[in-house]
Amino acid sequence: MAEMPLLQVRHLTTEFLLPGKGAARALEDVSFDVYPGQTIGLVGESGCGKTTVLMSILRLLPTQAQISGRVLFRGLDLLALSERQMREYRWKEIAIVFQGAMNALNPVMSVGEQICEAITLHGLMPRREAEARTGELLELVGIPKERGVQYPFQYSGGMRQRAMIAMALACSPCILFADEPTTALDVMVQAQILELLGNIQRKMGLAIVLVTHDLGVVAEMCDMVVVMYGGKVAEYGPVDRIFNNPQHPYTQKLLEAFPDLAQPVASLASIPGAPPRLSELPPGCRFAPRCHVCLPQCASEAPPLLEIAPGHFSACHLCKS
């Protein structure tokens, strides 16, 4: 790919300082690229650090979080900016759609006002034009613009998520973070929201970073996929390679655990054991205690993330470049 990546995440490491208990390492050495117009999926079990990646990039974590590494947005390190400078990039360049649209909107402010506020905050246009744009944005996500004066409690769950998407588009960002955007919604609405995201991406050439644990969604929407385990990248590469030729044992198990409509089975495969606790991580490979092909060295030596094929990375002692 000749194009410059919009966002280059390099060795992103996030630790939470716990008073009297040292530090919990939520992320370690996470690296990936986001290209314009591309959709990249972050997948993994609950607590593997998917959401923390997004929050670390936007620097929205509480103050006891220590973030290191580099997050290059068009070559500029976001982690090196002052808090005041960082605010310029939030929403205007990178917007985010949160998981629970139920509570992500302010209950005592009208939906239209919340969208309009995002536009005027960044001084993109005067108030009157911002109001007109708010109407357009609502129509774009399929909400009649007259409903902008209503409050979130007057919206259904799906409408709130649509409004949230409209709000995310307010400043025409070049990257959209979507943190499990369909989790709290029923299946029909889920499909509508994903379709909406896809349409908007095509229309606006938006790059999307999609956090999800639904591999079906990844297969359908994503170009690239980052499989995460215990705060580290287990495998990273183009979606068809990861799905057809998974190299990391965790990815293999994850895909086995996913139901296949073509060949239904009586009971789904599962991965025995539980993900590691962030405060007591195993010294070697984090997946070693649950791995079905574990080698002696896996318990002591952490495998590096190696490029095993062009653009396909995997962190496993069994994989050779």
Partner: peptide, 26 residues
């Protein structure tokens, strides 16, 4: 600790704006 406060921060608001525009009324 509500989600909409995180939304307000993600919008690029200063702590003071978050407090004044989104937290106070609630």
């Amino acid at each position: 600790s509500e989600d909409y406060i995180l939304t307000a921060k993600a919008k690029g608001m200063s702590p003071w704006q978050v407090l004044w525009r989104h937290a106070l009324k609630n």
